[in-house]
Computed example of a mutant assay.
Amino acid sequence: MVFRALVTHKDASGNVASAIEEMRETSLPEGDVLVGVEWAGFNYKDGLVLTGQGGLVRDYPHVGGVDFAGRVIESRDGRYHPGQAVILTGWRVGEIHWGGFATRARVKGDWLVPLPRKLSTRDAMVLGTAGLTAMLAVNRLKAEGVKPGDGDILVTGAGGGVGSIATHLLGRLGYKVYAMTGRPELAEPLMRLGAAEVVGRDVLEGTGKKLVSPRWASAVDTVGGAPLGELLKQIKPGGAVAAIGLAAGDSWNATVIPFILRGITLAGIDSVMQPIAARVGAWERLTSLFSSKVYEEMTQEARLEDLPRLAGDILAGQVRGKVVVKLAA
């Protein structure tokens, strides 16, 4: 069987380039389940893979795509049967294992999650890794005791996939969300998603102080770097920050002062290696909280051919919301 894929190659000089190719199923990596991919997501990691940054790919040629949804074609795993709709996110698929930028993918059954009945495969990828991560962050804040009446919640990088979905989920749960973005044109869409107010990046400008007046009850941080260091100084006593991304860098100048004087919590969110029970629980909760209709204006459809161009855009923070890639005819 021949299928289409966006294949990334690296030449002897280290240059990386991607192009559409026709391949045979025999070229796919080992796995228990063969999936006909209908939709894939396009994420920050995918931008890194397609541009050869971040050291995520070990071997070339490579097929990227860190998440996808589709239907089982063949299965040696008793949990899955032909025709069943499934989702894959994480497990370093699209990085060290071929991913969803193809009309066929072969993966381990342990990496899959059955598609909840209320979601289409397109809806699943509108959410995708970003939606799963946002839901895990919201669940973690709840586990830390953060309640809607505790005060304002800041979501950084709210114009991106994780940030915009986190804004929507928190708003649906009754939290007063302040959506931080450097793109003023996204203010109205973010308000429609559930933000109480949209603020600029200046709310986390460096002060040089070890502690400042408390402002936020808690936060979901998608950018990392120096803004996260400033954010920690502004969290109210007993508050928590769910940390997800590193678009602004992976380090910052910090002290223990906010932790020992205000008792705050910095909680890291890993969606890549989450166990199956946590994944299934998060997906089921997403089906009741997420409104694909409300989020549609933050959704952009693309083709495989568009992804090399979009890679630079997503790394530069120029992609709003979520990009979904249509694979099925």
Rank of each mutant, 00 (worst) to 15 (best):
G268H: 14
A248W: 01
P258I: 09
A254I: 14
G238I: 08
I257H: 08
I257T: 12
A277Q: 13
V241A: 06
G263M: 04
T265G: 04
V280K: 07
A267I: 06
D270T: 14
S288E: 07
G281E: 11
L261M: 12
T255E: 06
L286E: 00
N253W: 07
L261G: 00
E284L: 01
A248P: 02
I244T: 08
A240W: 02
R285T: 01
I276W: 09
S271R: 07
G239D: 07
R279S: 02
R262L: 04
D270G: 13
D270A: 13
T255N: 10
I276K: 12
V272Y: 07
S271I: 08
G238M: 06
G263Q: 03
T287A: 06
S271G: 15
A277F: 06
A242N: 10
W283F: 03
G281V: 00
L266E: 05
A247R: 06
I244V: 15
R285C: 00
I260D: 02
I244M: 10
G268M: 14
D270E: 14
W252Q: 05
D250P: 11
E284T: 00
A277C: 02
A278S: 13
F259K: 12
G238F: 08
S271T: 12
R262G: 04
A247L: 12
W283T: 00
F259W: 13
R279K: 15
A278M: 09
G239I: 06
A248I: 01
L266P: 01
G245P: 07
I269E: 09
I264W: 03
G281H: 03
L286A: 01
A278L: 12
P275G: 10
A247C: 10
A242H: 09
A254V: 15
W252F: 15
G263W: 05
L261R: 06
L266W: 07
A278W: 03
P275M: 10
I260A: 02
T265M: 09
A278C: 04
T287E: 03
I276A: 13
R279W: 02
I264V: 08
P275I: 09
G281P: 00
I276C: 03
A240T: 11
I269T: 10
A277E: 15
R285K: 06
G263V: 04
W283E: 02
G249Y: 11
M273V: 14
A248C: 05
M273W: 15
S251D: 11
G238P: 04
N253P: 04
V272Q: 11
A278N: 09
E284V: 01
G239K: 07
A242P: 07
Q274F: 01
R262A: 01
S288Y: 03
V272N: 14
T255A: 09
A240N: 02
R285W: 00
T287G: 00
R279Q: 04
A277H: 12
N253V: 13
A282Q: 02
I244K: 07
A240R: 02
A267K: 11
I264Y: 00
D250K: 15
L286M: 01
P275E: 11
A243M: 09
P275C: 11
L246A: 13
R279P: 02
N253R: 15
M273E: 15
A282M: 00
L261N: 04
P237H: 04
G238V: 08
V280T: 11
V272W: 06
L286N: 00
N253C: 03
V280R: 08
G249S: 11
A240K: 03
I276N: 06
